[in-house]
Amino acid sequence: MPTVSLKPALAYPKVRDISLRSLVKLLALVWLVVTLLPLLFVVFTSLKSQAETFDSPVWALPRQIDWSHYAAVLQGGILVYLRNSVWVVGMSIVLILAASSMAAYALARLEFRFNKTLFGLIVACMIVPIHITLVPIYLLTRSLGLYDTPFALIGPYVATSLPVSIFILTEFMRQIPRELEEAAKLDGCGPFAVFWKVFFPLSGPGLATVAIYNGIGLWNEFIFAYVLTSSPSNRTLPLALWDFQGEYASNIPAMLALVTLTSLPLIVAYAFGQERIVKGMMAGSLKG
């Protein structure tokens, strides 16, 4: 009886897998180019002289690197905006991590009435447009005497970031083995000790995901900062473009130098933190 060779049949899936991987790599390369070109355009144009931006092609490299626009922007008070952004975003992230991690632990592991209902309400808050709260937040801020202070931004930033943060951490903490929790209880740990000694350390990837995710969003936040602050000494970095547009409106390289400086901290943070974001999201999505 003749034998049938299975080698050609087995070769087709391998060829198909190689073709699929090649296609994915090609699409990733195309997407890299699409996302990188605007950034390169901004950086190259910011290094041109003002006259060169008008008499040279748009995508031409600078004939001579001109750092004067960066010096002018740094001397124009951008460091004050940077200081405010670092302080406001940093304090907001600390409060978000503290509140959301404790709430997530309670929702993930503590048995109490209306647990699932409360979690559902928190998830439902994620679909509420945050800008519809702008007027009541503005009135509350004025009545509390916090208007035009950095503290005016911390409350709204924390409140609007909590739903998605609690959702991410709750799903993450549900995957932590119960054996660790039971071992801690046998050692005499109460609920808070279990949270602090077991769940909080083991939730490191999830906490990093929440911190980076919210940090990127709050760093770029504009509308609350614009409405709740008015003086340059209390405004955050996204408003630097708004406040400086009158001074540099006709100076395209200076405006793009300002865009580069405001984007640089975010690019650096994301470059170092993107792996933690992916790991945190994947860890929270796996069923243990």
Rank of each mutant, 00 (worst) to 15 (best):
N234S: 12
F167L: 14
N251G: 08
P238M: 11
L186S: 14
L228S: 05
G217T: 05
S203E: 03
I168S: 07
V227K: 08
T236Q: 10
C189I: 08
R174N: 05
A249Q: 13
P201I: 04
L241G: 11
S165R: 02
D187M: 14
W196M: 09
G217W: 05
F167N: 00
C189N: 13
L186T: 14
L180Y: 15
I176H: 05
W196C: 05
V210P: 01
F167I: 09
I212H: 00
L241M: 14
F222K: 11
P205H: 09
A211I: 01
D243V: 09
Q245A: 06
S233V: 03
F222M: 10
L241H: 13
Y213G: 00
P191A: 14
S233G: 12
G204E: 06
Q245N: 12
S230N: 14
E182A: 12
L237S: 01
Q245M: 03
S165K: 07
R235S: 04
L202A: 06
G204H: 02
A193T: 10
I223P: 04
L186D: 14
P205S: 10
S250P: 03
N251V: 10
I212D: 00
E247F: 10
E181C: 07
F192A: 15
P232N: 11
L218R: 11
L207Q: 12
F199V: 03
F224R: 09
G215L: 04
W242I: 00
F222I: 07
G215C: 04
S231V: 00
V198H: 10
L169S: 06
I212G: 08
S230C: 01
S203N: 06
A240Q: 05
F224C: 12
A208Y: 03
R235Y: 04
N251P: 00
S250Q: 15
M173L: 11
S250M: 10
N214V: 00
D187P: 03
T209Y: 05
S230K: 13
T170Y: 11
L207G: 04
L180V: 04
S165G: 04
G204W: 06
R174A: 01
Y226T: 02
M173W: 05
W242G: 09
L239A: 04
A193V: 08
F192R: 08
V227G: 02
K185V: 14
L237N: 10
Y248P: 01
K185D: 04
L180M: 14
P238T: 12
F192S: 07
S250W: 13
C189E: 11
E181A: 05
A211M: 09
M173E: 05
I223K: 07
F195S: 07
L239M: 06
N214Q: 14
L218C: 12
N220S: 15
P191H: 15
P177F: 02
V227F: 05
S165A: 15
A225V: 08
I168R: 04
F167H: 12
K185T: 13
G204D: 02
T236F: 02
V194W: 00
V194P: 01
P177R: 11
R235I: 01
F222N: 10
I168K: 02
L218W: 11
K185R: 15
F195P: 02
C189K: 12
L218K: 08
L169H: 05
E179T: 07
P238C: 13
L228I: 03
D243P: 14
F200W: 09
S231L: 06
T209A: 07
